[in-house]
């Protein structure tokens, strides 16, 4: 192409690569130069909000005087005595664990089935992506209808199957099944993400490996369990990591389907933070919750990476 090196990307065209010598800063061999656009961008965008939230978490907004008053650790001490916060943690954890397990198992199942090449596999692969293409706000509205206690087909089927009752539908009643009602949307929309990634992983398993095991007389289950699954583990760890990070911040479905109810049965951390910041104008407490969620995700992701030895 006519427009050559560097101009488009904004990285200065490197002159001579001096291998083995001390790297000059402006050389193509300096990794930091390559990383700088992304790192500068991410620092700009993440550091500001992070510092802002940390600052706010030690202040509270006085609506009348319209100023932030320094309150020391008050927000943080409130946090740990706040029963709604504890409820939100418990709800969020339930949500993350259930959604993750179902999405991963179901995702693997669908991917394996698709990998066995049924008729019309191309079409099915395309169609299964569709739920992901629905904006979560729209998906929420769609399931507000499908999970509706009176007009909802999904609720109707669940009632027939005896999973929910007339008095305790997916959305409504005292909220016994409300978390399930929200999880249905989550599983519906993001299982395809796991399917895609696992399918890609399956496709990249060298055929020789599979054929060799066939010669050994291993049956389908053995082949899957002993050969394919271990090879998939790396893809899976990354898929799970991304789901984990997003699941902890569940918000959209809650706002649209339940507003955290009935009776706080679906109030997630993100939703609780949202109402504090945006509805009750408790900017300080909202920011405290925001920082908490971030730290929580940080710790979970970090331990996950350590435990599963994810190497980059």
């Amino acid at each position: 192409m006519a427009h050559s090196d560097g101009v488009l990307v904004g990285t200065p065209a490197p002159t001579v690569a001096v291998a083995g010598h001390k790297r000059r800063f402006f050389s193509g061999e300096n990794p930091w130069l390559w990383l700088s656009p992304a790192l500068i961008f991410l620092l700009l965008y993440s550091l500001g909000p992070l510092l802002y939230n940390i600052y706010l978490s030690f202040h509270e907004f006085n609506a009348r005087r319209k100023e932030f008053l320094f309150v020391e650790f008050e927000n943080w001490t409130t946090l740990f005595s706040d029963s709604r916060f504890q409820n939100a943690i418990s709800i969020t954890l339930q949500y993350v664990v259930i959604a993750l397990i179902v999405q991963v198992l179901l995702g693997i199942l669908i991917a394996v089935l698709l990998d066995a090449r049924p008729f019309g596999v191309g079409l099915m692969q395309t169609l299964i992506i569709l739920p992901m293409v629905t904006a979560p706000t729209v998906a929420g509205m769609l399931f507000r209808l499908l999970n509706h206690s009176e007009f909802g087909y999904v609720n109707f089927l669940f009632e027939r199957a005896g999973i929910v009752t007339r008095a305790e539908p997916l959305l409504g009643g005292s909220g016994e099944n409300a978390l399930l009602g929200v999880l249905i949307v989550e599983v519906w929309q993001w299982t395809p993400f796991v399917v895609l990634i696992v399918l890609a992983g399956l496709k990249s398993i060298p055929t020789e490996v599979v054929e060799a095991s066939q010669v050994d007389g291993a049956n389908w289950w053995q082949r899957f369990w002993r050969i394919k699954l271990p090879l998939l583990s790396t893809v899976l760890t990354i898929a799970i990591l991304f789901r984990l990070v997003d699941l902890f911040r569940v918000f959209d479905y809650v706002v649209i389907l339940t507003s955290g109810g009935p009776a706080l049965r679906t109030e997630s951390l993100s939703y609780y933070g949202y109402v504090n910041t945006f509805q009750q104008v408790n900017f300080g407490y909202g920011a405290t919750l925001g920082v908490f969620v971030m730290v929580l995700v940080w710790v979970v992701a970090f331990s996950y990476i350590r435990i599963f030895r994810v190497k980059w």
Partner: peptide, 25 residues
């Protein structure tokens, strides 16, 4: 009163407490 919205709007104390009441919690 100035802080009325803080106690009455979505997610605030009044509708949340009422939510516990109407669900029998």
């Amino acid at each position: 009163f100035p802080a009325w919205a803080d106690v009455s709007s979505t997610g605030a104390v009044i509708p949340t407490e009422l939510g516990l009441m109407v669900t029998g919690e």
